[in-house]
Amino acid sequence: MHTVDQENVSATLTVAVPAAKVFAVLADPTTHSAIDGTGWVQESVDRAPLTEVGQIFRMHMYHANHPNGDYQVANQVQLLDPPRAIGWRTGTEKDDGHLEFGGWIWRYDLAPLGPSEAEVTLTYDWSAVPQSIREYIQFPPFGPEHLTNSLQHLAELVAGK
């Protein structure tokens, strides 16, 4: 199931895996390409596990509509509450190392439903995106089924670990 609000979209899926195991996969940037499943997210540049708020992890990306096709994003961890929640904002790193963020956030909330089951909610929130960016990027930049598919990839990945 998924819901679309004015400024965010979310999807929820129950997985037959403990929340801590799901969190460990989400906190590993090297798994994000497989979770995404669209081909937009390529491999991670920074391979260290996500362990603190403010941590930056960069990802190689590809999108046919992007001016460069291949590009890189810099994500900054905004929320880290193992094993209940993890979230990051996405931006770009300028040549001088300065980071600029677009105003959108990816967030996963995990609710244990017992020792071997968890409910996972993925939320994409664009409420902080300035008008200047909204003029050339449509939000959300994907259909609502994307989040559901992503959660299904996550479930398959975690089940196989």
Rank of each mutant, 00 (worst) to 15 (best):
residue 13 L to A: 12
residue 146 H to V: 06
residue 107 R to M: 11
residue 116 S to N: 15
residue 120 V to Q: 05
residue 51 T to D: 12
residue 34 A to H: 09
residue 121 T to E: 02
residue 102 G to H: 08
residue 53 V to L: 02
residue 43 E to F: 08
residue 159 A to S: 15
residue 81 D to S: 10
residue 20 A to P: 08
residue 141 P to C: 03
residue 92 T to D: 08
residue 4 V to C: 14
residue 2 H to M: 12
residue 79 L to T: 14
residue 47 R to E: 12
residue 63 H to E: 13
residue 96 D to V: 00
residue 159 A to I: 03
residue 128 A to V: 00
residue 52 E to Q: 04
residue 45 V to F: 00
residue 105 I to H: 11
residue 112 P to T: 07
residue 108 Y to C: 02
residue 60 H to C: 06
residue 30 T to V: 13
residue 13 L to C: 07
residue 58 R to L: 02
residue 130 P to Y: 04
residue 69 G to Y: 01
residue 97 G to N: 08
residue 93 E to M: 09
residue 20 A to F: 09
residue 64 A to C: 00
residue 50 L to E: 04
residue 127 S to Q: 11
residue 36 D to W: 11
residue 75 N to I: 02
residue 115 P to M: 03
residue 132 S to W: 10
residue 161 K to Q: 14
residue 118 A to P: 03
residue 101 F to T: 03
residue 41 V to W: 06
residue 98 H to M: 11
residue 135 E to V: 03
residue 110 L to S: 01
residue 42 Q to Y: 00
residue 69 G to V: 01
residue 145 E to I: 07
residue 26 L to H: 05
residue 79 L to R: 13
residue 89 R to A: 14
residue 6 Q to K: 13
residue 43 E to K: 14
residue 23 F to P: 02
residue 95 D to Q: 12
residue 122 L to Q: 12
residue 39 G to Q: 04
residue 32 H to N: 00
residue 101 F to E: 03
residue 39 G to K: 04
residue 94 K to A: 15
residue 19 A to V: 04
